[in-house]
Nucleic acid binder design. Structure first.
Lengths: 212, 212
DNA sequence: CCTAGTTTTTGGACTCAGTACAGTATCTAA
DNA sequence: TTAGATACTGTACTGAGTCCAAAAACTAGG
């Protein structure tokens, strides 16, 4: 769950490229033996690193499935923080679409290649759901800042969850459509636009002082 | 993950009330030692049952946190199946509200009492997310039947996820509001009505043959 | 060169959830 | 009584995740 940049300024024992080694070894082994059929021991052995080191870099085995998404979520959080200062409520939509547009089409998350192979083990599903929830949390922060409402407010939570659900639907459908699909951005736009007008209306209604 | 009704028609060794014994022992121990601080061994020992029996009744420790919700989801699935034969798209809203109205206000899921005590361990969050995903899956089945579209269709998925997200937002906010809150049904209605018009419109637009 | 301080890496012991399965207990039906 | 069915138990195993003390590799300062 860490994304440590690892800028060792000089002091202390320097990092070996452990993180990258582990990621690569894992990617190989997942292809050979599937995610479930691969143990952390095998990964660290192939990476030429001790098992304990694994947990210096990753909080859980399932983190290996979601680097791309985790990085994307980091970008999302940054973009939201920037937009929440200046932008309107509408800007959340823009941020979401930009993120989708900027996502490297060729780097489909490892997780999704795994679900194609086998029927998506519980562990994979759950770790994916965590990422969706994380995204919802980012949305909630943005919306509560924009709407001047509490983070736990029903409207904020509803909007955040619904948005995250819609985005997830788009990403999953896009991933399932396989090679030859149209760009991710279009999927996300379609999906979000089903939901967004209702959210906009609700926030405007609240802003006008109607009870909610 | 099972909810076996356990109607032993007669043949075979009759069940002792193992399931109930386990549930009760767990509820006690969770209060005494919290969820994370309780092991399956302790639960089965107090229940006077072997550890192996635990896994005859529950697929995972976290299932103990969600009986009520799992039962509610079973009802939901049944109601959706019934409604998908006769009702309109609108009936999904009715089903959701009925479920909320029928939920025993005093039986707040064990999970939520746990998150109050401590900061919601990952395991608890994840098992909760699984329930939300299950609900989304039920919605997707209904919507694909009603809309004559495939279960993996982008619109179906979007609507199902957004609905599930909205419902979850309502339940969580309701639970957090603690004693003295207004009925759950009101929360759910507010939440769903932010989302639902957009979904209705999208399905109608599709039904008219517009590209989506 | 030596030393002190810092950070990464390692090895090993541990807990606990979840799986597998063979064997036993308790019931019904014939 | 016996055969078949189902519920329960004991036991052994795998593997994820935690903890911690110690070693390794480096820098800076004397």
């Amino acid at each position: 769950m860490q994304t440590s940049a690892g800028q060792t300024a000089g002091v202390g024992r320097p990092k070996v490229s452990s993180r990258q080694l582990i990621e690569d070894a894992a990617a190989e082994l997942f292809i050979e033996n599937t995610y479930v059929g691969t143990t952390i021991d095998q990964i660290t052995t192939r990476a030429g690193v001790s098992r304990a080191t694994f947990f210096n870099y990753f909080g859980a085995k399932s983190d290996l499935l979601w680097f791309e998404v985790d990085r994307a979520n980091d970008s999302l959080r940054a973009a939201c923080a920037a937009a929440s200062a200046t932008g309107s409520l509408e800007s959340i939509r823009d941020v979401i679409l930009e993120l989708a547009a900027g996502f490297d089409e060729r780097r489909v998350p490892l997780a999704l290649t795994q679900t194609e192979v086998m029927g998506a083990a519980d562990e994979i599903v759950q770790s994916g759901l965590v990422r969706i929830a994380t995204q919802a949390s980012v949305f909630a922060d943005f919306l509560s800042a924009r709407g001047a409402r509490h983070r736990d407010d029903l409207l904020v939570r509803t909007a955040a969850n619904a948005l995250a659900g819609a985005v997830a639907a788009a990403w999953i459908t896009w991933a399932r459509d396989g090679i030859g699909r149209s760009p991710l951005e279009g999927y996300v736009a379609e999906s979000v636009d089903v939901i967004f007008p209702g959210i906009r209306a609700a926030f405007e209604s609240v802003a006008r002082g109607n009870t909610f």
